[in-house]
Computed example of a mutant assay.
Amino acid sequence: MSWGKRLSVGLLAGAVGVTAWLWLTMLSPWFYERPDELPTIEQRTHQVFVYGTLRYWPVRWIVMGDSGSPEPARLEGFERHGLDLSPSDHSHVDGLLLTVSPRALERLDRYERLGIRYERIEQTLADGTTAWVYVRLPEVSLMDSAPAYGIALLPYEALPVTAQRLVALPTN
Rank of each mutant, 00 (worst) to 15 (best):
M1S: 15
W3N: 08
G4I: 11
A13P: 07
A13D: 03
V16F: 08
V16S: 12
G17K: 06
G17L: 11
W21A: 04
L22S: 02
W23F: 14
W23Y: 12
L27A: 13
L27V: 07
W30N: 08
F31C: 08
E33R: 01
L38H: 02
L38R: 02
T40W: 08
T45E: 04
M64A: 01
M64R: 00
G65I: 04
A73P: 13
L75K: 11
G77D: 03
E79K: 04
H81G: 11
H81P: 09
D84F: 01
L85D: 05
P87Y: 13
D89I: 05
S91C: 15
D94I: 02
L96H: 07
L97Q: 11
T99P: 00
T99V: 00
T99F: 03
S101G: 03
L105M: 00
E106T: 05
L108W: 02
D109K: 00
Y111P: 08
L114I: 06
I116N: 13
Y118F: 09
I121R: 10
T124S: 02
W132I: 03
W132P: 10
R136D: 15
E139F: 06
V140H: 13
V140P: 13
M143R: 15
A146Y: 14
A152D: 14
A152R: 10
L153K: 05
E157R: 10
L159R: 00
V167C: 04
